[in-house]
Design a protein around this nucleic acid. Structure first.
Length: 424
RNA sequence: GGAGAGGUCGCAUAGUGGUCUAGUGCGCCGCACUCGAAAUGCGGUGUGGGGCAACUCACCGAGGGUUCGAAUCCCUCCCUCUCCGCCA
């Protein structure tokens, strides 16, 4: 959601920002309904004020035993009452329309982000580490996994269907080691407060983060009003829905490990081998609540926190800044961390660090007060993966495969796996 | 799943159709007293919207309804607590 005053007073600015993203928003409809809503409200309030005066006087007259006068006053209220009944219904209807319209607005892009049409216009802003060199063509992770019996795709398909991963033996162990290592790292080294939230959330939470109403087809719905979370971002961001935080609590840094569930509705047939795109995966997610003036510094440090995992593991990666056409509806500015996957032969998105500014906090009504007595303001919300497990799993198998067929584990993972290497 | 109790302005409570546009205590802020503090006294202390000034409207878990008038009565839903059943 955007600031109503901004759309009202600077519609051309809003239009321009949304056009830069290559998206649409019902600006005209907003202006029309908003105009009518305010007019209806003003008229309604005058009548309500009059009705309140009369009702109060009836109460007073009754108290004084002046029944006839009270009855006379009652008779005056008929027309007012009719007007108010109609006006209230109209007002409710218009406010609901406003809400629906507002929820359709994308966020505006930050001025600093590059213009562009799609992912080809994204900008690489950083490369870290060396592309690992191999004497022979490195195997893709699905081949490494098959050889070392780390995954069992046929049985995954049997018990659940296509698009699911079944980790076995040391593969299961490595997977568990990864998320334990990462949540430890983000909480103990980078100072995030650990959250372990529910995996099922209601629609209000999904509206708060911006997953509903527009992206329902990406979600698994399990009950009338319960959905499996597509990321821990949803429950963790909504921790403070409809709350007012105190300024001295900010910046608030939370991190949670959860399973994530995505229908990948629009991606059928893409990345069908291995674990690059699956319906259920594990992820550590970081969420920050900041004062508006701090959010862009916090975005930079959020990316560093995501990177620190890869640096600790010694994996080559790059960071790209998303252009206006690729950032999507919700974000104002976004960096993707892409991990080099030598077997697959391309960079894989493993973290997306986004500043939503006040877009989510308006939807979820999350505010803060600078000092006692100050007006509540909307917080800025940011989040980023820290990191996603399957692609990290894939890159480790591919990057650290050895001539003898084993996978030599990075130092930091060894205590978690309980071994130096994975071998047949 | 069954039965019962309950959700009031930060906290605790009062309030069962008409000076309740919600009282009181605590907390918090300001002022007074004080060298300073405590204690005391006085005043203030929610959110959102319209006008953007005076003012006004809405909000007592949420949404409907009855009424001239609802925190209070009716209906639906949500949540919390207690007990029973089932169960990792």
């Amino acid at each position: 959601m955007l600031d109503r005053d901004l759309i009202r007073n600077h519609p051309e600015l809003v239009r321009a920002g949304i056009a830069r993203k290559g998206l649409d928003a019902p600006v005209d409809e907003f202006l029309r309904v908003d105009q009518e809503r305010r007019q209806v409200q003003t008229e309604l309030q005058e009548k309500q004020a009059e009705m309140n005066r009369i009702s109060k006087s009836i109460g007073m007259l009754m108290g004084q035993g002046k029944k006839d006068e009270a009855e006379a006053a009652k008779a005056q209220t008929k027309d007012l009452k009719d007007f108010i009944t109609v006006g209230e219904a109209r007002q409710r209807d218009l406010e609901n329309q406003m809400r629906e319209i507002e929820l359709q607005f994308p966020n505006l892009p930050h001025d600093s982000i590059p213009n562009g049409k799609d992912e080809h216009d994204n900008v690489v802003v950083k490369l870290w580490g060396e592309v690992p060199q191999f004497d022979v063509q490195p195997q893709a992770h699905w081949d490494v996994a098959e050889r070392l019996k780390l995954l069992d795709p046929p049985r995954a398909a049997k018990i659940s269907g296509s698009g699911f991963a079944l980790y076995t033996g040391q593969g299961a162990r490595l997977q568990r080691a990864l998320f334990t290592f990462m949540i430890d790292h983000q909480t103990m080294k980078n100072g995030y407060y650990e959250i372990y939230p529910p995996y099922l959330v209601n629609s209000a939470s999904l509206i708060g983060t911006g997953n509903l109403p527009k992206f329902e087809e990406d979600l698994y719905k399990v009950d009338d009003d319960l959905y499996l979370i597509p990321t821990a971002e949803v429950p963790v961001t909504n921790l403070y829905r409809d709350e007012i935080l105190s300024g001295d609590q900010l910046t608030l840094k939370l991190a949670g490990y959860t399973g994530c569930f995505r229908r990948e509705a629009g991606a059928a047939g893409k990345d069908t081998r291995g674990v690059l795109r699956i319906h259920q995966f594990d992820k550590v997610e970081m969420v920050k609540f900041t004062k508006p003036e701090d959010s862009y510094d916090e975005l930079e440090s959020l990316v560093k926190d995501a990177e620190s995992i890869l640096q600790t593991l010694g994996l080559h990666y790059r960071i790209i800044e998303l252009c206006s056409g690729d950032i999507g509806a919700k974000g104002a500015k976004c960096y993707d961390v892409e991990l080099w996957s030598p077997g697959v032969g391309r960079y894989l998105e493993i973290s997306s660090c986004t500043n939503f500014e006040a877009y989510q906090s308006r939807r979820a009504n999350i505010r803060f007060r600078r000092a006692q007595g100050d007006k509540p303001e909307f917080v800025h919300i940011l989040n980023g993966s820290g990191l996603a497990c399957p692609r990290l799993f894939a890159a480790i198998l591919e990057s650290f495969q050895q001539p003898d067929g084993s996978v030599l584990l990075p130092e930091a993972l060894r205590p978690y796996v309980g071994a130096d290497r994975i071998s047949a």
